[in-house]
Simulated scan of single mutants.
Amino acid sequence: MMTQPIRFAMCGTGWVAQMYARSIAAVPGVELVAVHNHRQPSLDEFTADHPVAVATTDWDEFLSAVGDGGADVAVVATPNALHAPQSIALMRAGVHVLVEKPMAVSVEEAEEMAAVADETGRALMTGHMWRFDPEARWLRQEIAAGALGRIIRTRSLSVHTWWGPSGWFQQRALAGGGALADMGVHAIDTTRYLIGDPRPVRVTARIGTYYGDYDVDDTAVLLIDWDNDTTSVVEAGWWQVQCDGPEAATRLHGTRAFGSLFPTLVTRELQSPESGGSTFEERTPPPFDRAEHCDPRLFEAQIAHAADVARGTTSPENGPDVGLTAVRIMEASYRSARTGQEVALA
């Protein structure tokens, strides 16, 4: 029996919107039916690569076209300040939402989004893509099975070296923050995902602007205490001169073993009763041949998952709590940096 494809709509036409659009084209059983951008030239460039039935610069026209059954899922890939109003409007129009990270620019906005999702019964998912990475999923399973023992401390990185984004990313009014809002939320959520999604208890942060003339941050260092007694260091940045690993690289120190994401492995010491010495055992995940570090298949996995959520065959793995918790930590970090004080979250 043939089933109808899940229809996606796209808010935004920038780099990440293009990634999602290519993913929609690659995933069976889904299709892109509508796109909105306020600038006609950007819209024309997007639709030249991704033809759709509805392409408009008029928000009301777009909302009317996708609401009430016109689309099943909307991807919100616009400047961060638009995430909340657009997602809320789409959910109230009856559309499930996959919103790019960060979920919102403030806790107040993120909480309103979560409340509207509950009120409307629409799914609200946040694009924390590393949750869909095969290596991250393998390492989370290893940790959950006790391979590392109790996790004492972690360090996670999301840093651009010798490069940083331009345009609205450098404007606080549209982005809500700089490197922390852009890159740091990847490291925050990856850490939380790997150690089993604990609740943050307190945050201390040092955040600054050192590499450019803009009104947002380009350097951030966070110290997060979780309710499972793990302490995490998170580093985020643009234009840095060095970094110890690629985006979302994470090191985890447990009482039994050491774990690492990118490179991904678990290493532990094995005692030999016969010799009284020890050897080291290293385990690695099944091979995942990446086209690039941020492999397009991570976006395809998010689209496939959102489609399954729309079909009602699964619940969101990246639901409101995921995005909201990252925003809570982000907001607390900015407050800590302003005041020079630790910020309690629980």
Rank of each mutant, 00 (worst) to 15 (best):
P134F: 02
L174G: 01
G196M: 15
T264R: 07
I143Y: 12
R172L: 01
P79A: 00
E269W: 09
T279K: 01
D49F: 10
S64N: 02
H186I: 14
R251N: 13
A304F: 11
L98A: 03
G146L: 06
W168C: 01
T313R: 13
I24A: 11
P85T: 10
L222M: 13
P246C: 04
W162Q: 12
A291C: 10
T154Y: 15
V52H: 05
S166C: 02
S278G: 08
M1V: 06
P165H: 04
V99I: 10
E45Q: 11
P165G: 06
A9L: 01
R290I: 05
V185S: 09
A306K: 01
A17K: 08
R22K: 14
G14L: 10
R22N: 14
T279G: 08
A34R: 05
A346S: 13
V241H: 12
A249C: 07
P102H: 01
L148H: 15
V33M: 03
V266A: 10
Q271P: 09
Y193S: 03
L139W: 07
V185A: 12
A301R: 12
I207C: 01
A249M: 14
A117N: 02
E119Q: 15
T204Q: 14
I207V: 11
V159L: 08
P246R: 08
A249T: 10
D217L: 02
W130H: 13
A110Y: 02
V76M: 01
